[in-house]
């Protein structure tokens, strides 16, 4: 399992695309949107920062799905999946080995973007334990969905398109781009069925209201539930994915 994790991490370190999606683009978006909205006097600066920084962190964590889809489809089509399946490595270790590097990248992404918020915009961090827990669960959720998507889709393009729908659609409907209060009631209701909404709720409770683990337990539970759904889909999709593998 660790062999797969190490190799995958080595490959990712050499992948410039992932650095762009994970760190550079989110920073551009955060800076851009804070600059645009700070010109309007409707929000307090701290409220603006605690809306935009976690909002874009949540949105961009889902972009890891693109990298996961590309990696898995490439391995499937090159025959590498079948080759690894011919070794004694059990299925669960293969999936965990493949998943861990992406989880690590998303955790790093959250840390870097949070630090950027703290250093540049004085983002208040709140309870570190609560922040760590929600960050870990968000990373678990995004990567487990990425894994499920990678094993389900037939083509790379389909995976990238669906990721855009999940990341951008979820961001828009989940209130990551603008406060939900200014959206219609029907939209606010839809938001409650999306993990992005619950992630933002959790982050804002910690960053804005000084909430602790017990204050965000519902968000944690719902995000964990969404993440588990991704894991279950992955396990059930793997045999079909393996059948599609070359060689």
């Amino acid at each position: 399992m660790w062999a797969i994790t190490i190799v995958e991490l080595k490959k990712k370190l050499q992948d410039k695309g992932i650095w762009f999606w994970t760190f550079i683009l989110p920073i551009i978006f955060i800076v851009g949107f804070i600059t645009i909205f700070s010109g309007m006097n409707e929000m307090e600066p701290e409220q603006l920062v605690t809306q935009i920084v976690p909002g874009y962190i949540i949105m961009f964590t889902f972009f890891i799905m693109i990298s996961m889809v590309i990696t898995f489809i490439k391995d499937r089509d090159s025959g590498m999946v079948a080759r690894v399946a011919s070794t004694p490595l059990p299925l669960n270790r293969f999936l965990v080995g493949k998943w861990l590097p992406f989880l690590i990248i998303v955790i790093l992404q959250i840390i870097v973007l949070m630090l950027f918020g703290v250093l540049v915009y004085d983002l208040p961090l709140g309870d570190p334990l609560a922040l760590m827990l929600i960050s870990l669960i968000l990373a678990f959720l995004a990567t487990s969905w990425g894994m499920a998507m990678s094993l389900l889709v037939n083509t790379e393009n389909m995976g990238i398109a669906l990721t855009q729908v999940i990341a951008l659609g979820g961001a828009m409907l989940g209130g990551l781009w603008m406060p939900l209060e200014i959206m219609p009631n029907s939209m606010q209701l839809i938001a409650k069925f999306l993990p992005q909404y619950w992630a933002l709720e959790g982050f804002q409770s910690i960053l804005q209201d000084g909430g602790h683990v017990m204050d965000i337990w519902l968000s944690l539970l719902i995000l964990l539930g969404f993440g588990m759904i991704g894991c279950v889909i992955s396990v059930f999709s793997y045999p079909r994915f393996l059948r599609q593998s070359r060689s």
Binding site: W2, A3, V7, K10, G79, A82, V84, T87, P88
Partner: peptide
């Protein structure tokens, strides 16, 4: 069993030694 598939299944970004190390660990 040692399986040599029809397609070349190697990690392109790694060296020959690293590839052998990788598969050795999988076994």
């Amino acid at each position: 069993i040692g399986y040599v598939p029809q397609d070349i299944c190697l990690e392109e970004l790694l060296t020959a030694k690293d590839n052998l190390m990788y598969f050795g660990r999988l076994y």
